[in-house]
Simulated assay, not measured.
Amino acid sequence: MKRFSCDELVELVTAYLEGGLDEPTGGRFEEHLGDCEGCRRYLGQFRTTVVTLGEPQPGGLPGETRERLLSAFRDRGRS
């Protein structure tokens, strides 16, 4: 059975936390976590973010906040 890469795990983290992975995929996900400290740390940070931010509010982010956030992500990608 092919093992997950870290990039594949990152793509599935939301589905994992929501219980949306089928049994074989969830098993491979957890197997990767067992062997990868970086991905365990990433999952922990992701869980902390979800708990801290809570549920998204109706209407999304206000325009100015959304633009600042998108700009920060764009700038980070250039470094």
Rank of each mutant, 00 (worst) to 15 (best):
L43Y: 01
G59E: 02
V51W: 04
G27V: 00
V13A: 08
S5L: 10
T48P: 02
D35N: 11
P24I: 00
E30R: 13
P56Q: 00
G20M: 06
G59Y: 03
V13P: 00
R28H: 10
V13K: 04
Q57R: 14
G20R: 13
T49C: 05
L12W: 06
K2D: 08
E11I: 10
R3E: 15
G77N: 08
T49P: 03
R40F: 04
F4C: 01
L12H: 10
D75Y: 07
Q57F: 01
R40D: 05
L70I: 08
G60R: 01
A72I: 00
Q57H: 03
M1D: 12
L17K: 08
L61N: 03
C6L: 04
A15V: 02
R3Y: 00
S71Q: 14
V13E: 06
F29N: 03
Y42N: 06
S79F: 06
K2N: 07
P58T: 02
A72W: 06
P62W: 08
E31T: 05
L53Q: 06
V50G: 02
G26A: 09
Q45F: 10
V13R: 08
T65R: 15
C36F: 04
H32Y: 05
G34S: 14
L17Q: 10
V51C: 01
G20E: 13
G59R: 03
V50K: 13
L9Q: 08
H32N: 05
G19H: 04
G26D: 04
E23P: 02
T25Q: 11
R40W: 06
L53H: 05
G60W: 01
F73P: 03
R76D: 13
G63H: 11
L43W: 00
E64H: 12
H32P: 01
A15N: 06
L61D: 07
V50S: 04
E11A: 15
E67H: 06
E23F: 07
L43G: 01
C6F: 05
R3D: 14
C39I: 08
Q57E: 14
G20F: 03
V10S: 05
L69Q: 07
D22H: 09
E23K: 08
E23G: 02
P58V: 02
P58C: 06
E31D: 12
E18D: 14
P62Q: 15
E64C: 07
G59W: 00
S79H: 07
G20I: 04
T48S: 12
P58W: 03
T48C: 00
G54R: 01
F4W: 07
R41Q: 12
R68E: 12
D7K: 12
P58Y: 03
D75F: 11
G19I: 04
T25I: 02
T52E: 13
T65V: 15
D7A: 13
E8K: 09
L61E: 11
G59F: 00
E37S: 10
T65D: 14
D75A: 14
G26V: 00
R78I: 07
M1H: 11
G38V: 14
